[in-house]
Design a protein around this nucleic acid. Structure first.
Lengths: 111, 111
DNA sequence: TCGATTTGACACCTTTTGGTATCACGTTAA
DNA sequence: TTAACGTGATACCAAAAGGTGTCAAATCGA
């Protein structure tokens, strides 16, 4: 049914794509900038960006011959909510997202 | 680094495996019981269960010749938290997980 | 005891995925 | 104007993923 959620979870399944998302959390990047940090070609990074875009996790802003990629809020919420549904099945302490964010050390989630 | 998180996200990338998780939310199932609901062989379902187990999303209780599969809380929290990290990058209203659960209609997240 | 049941483990096949190499196209700057 | 730059797109390849069929082993029930 929800192909958007499917694409979103598929996008998160690859460690390179999760790494890209964390780098975009520090601000928008072009493909060339992202490629510097990976041991693969620009074409491979471009493919990962396409998958991330299909999942609604990033957007692209075009400026001249450059394309700046940035995080897109739209794709994240459905994925987080899908997982959060299962929290009701274990009676543990329920996490408040505000607490997660307030206690965050700004370095990003551990990869 | 965190192969556990990697396996978890990989497990969620397949729609059959997400369907299995939602069925297990209704209680533990054997492989044979799960297979009734899918258009694939028991061996295929078994493979999906192995992936879910590798991701720490399910556990198995053995009783005689039967093996009952059930949800495992351990694997879910790291995945939810990983995604929740990004919530700080859009200033929208932060969702309180308690609200999500209280408003849930008990039918499970839309697939 | 012995057949039916439930499962795990392989070998095997096809499709998808992650990667490279290469070329074409628009943009920039000298 | 023209060469360098940044990118999209495509063909191609190896490996991983999702599936089937089959067989052996353990357990249950008559």
């Amino acid at each position: 049914m929800d192909i958007y959620t499917q694409n979103g979870f598929r996008a998160l399944a690859d460690p390179t794509r999760r790494d890209i998302l964390q780098r975009l959390a520090g601000g928008e990047h072009t493909i060339a900038q992202l490629t510097e940090h990976f041991d693969m070609t620009r074409a491979a990074v471009k493919k990962h960006l396409t998958v991330l875009s299909d999942g609604g996790l990033i957007t692209t802003r075009v400026s001249g011959r450059e394309r700046f990629n940035a995080l897109d809020p739209n794709g994240f919420a459905p994925l987080r909510d899908w997982i959060s549904f299962f929290d009701q099945f274990w009676g543990n302490q329920l996490t408040n997202l505000n607490d997660i964010i307030e206690n965050n050390d700004q370095k990003g989630p551990l990869q």
